[in-house]
Design a protein around this nucleic acid. Structure first.
Lengths: 108, 108
DNA sequence: TTGACACATATCGATATCGCTATATAGTGG
DNA sequence: CCACTATATAGCGATATCGATATGTGTCAA
């Protein structure tokens, strides 16, 4: 059994620098494929391929707008990574728990 | 230019499930290679290889103890991943900032 | 309808990565 | 010194992944 496919494992999907760059770019808001081609220095098919990978792990979603496709982040799909990181930051998580409690008390 | 090597990019290094499992296991504390072989269901050379990868990106460190080598996590090496995630969690970060403030006020 | 534009998909060669098997290195006990 | 244990490294075949090129699909505009 080798590494889980990039198209099924968000960790692996995010293992590629170009895909991370695309995601950072999308953090600013929706963008068309051609816009992203301008951001990343890759030919359009390569970008479309990366977007397809990110779509399959649900890290990005897209909607049609005329002949363009506007891609946007799907932040909730980052949850597995957040959780995994949380495994190592017990101290940090403790603080977060306290935060939740405190914030809930603050604005009920 | 393809994907950065697993031995140089922590994101890619962590893209492998077995390596993540090893890291989760190490979150409990130091462990020898043979212990980790028991945890992950892989032959010893495979585990040593994974550990070598994690060592090269400084995600784990090891010390000799007799004929064993005890591996442990090096949490600070997770910082790049934390930061990258932070890019997308603006809302979350806002809450964290508030937490810091609140906690500082609580216990000066 | 025809042509141009925006994007997706298919295919290919080069490279990376995985787990496996065999072997090398190093510390320990007799 | 010699076996034994614990771990690292080397080489191999199978598979995955990347970027590039070529082509398919769908939308708009004239």
């Amino acid at each position: 059994m080798a590494r889980a496919a990039t198209t099924s494992d968000p960790f692996n999907a995010v293992g590629d620098p170009q895909r991370r760059q695309i995601m950072v770019s999308l953090a600013r808001g929706e963008a068309s494929v051609s816009t992203l081609v301008g951001v990343v220095g890759l030919p359009q098919p390569a970008v479309s391929r990366h977007l397809a990978v990110l779509r399959q792990v649900d890290l990005v979603r897209c909607r049609a707008s005329g002949r363009q496709r506007l891609y946007r982040l799907n932040e909730p799909a980052l949850e597995p990574i957040h959780q995994w990181l949380g495994t190592f930051a017990a101290l940090w998580n403790d603080r977060l728990d306290r935060v939740d409690t405190i914030l809930q008390e603050e604005e009920p």
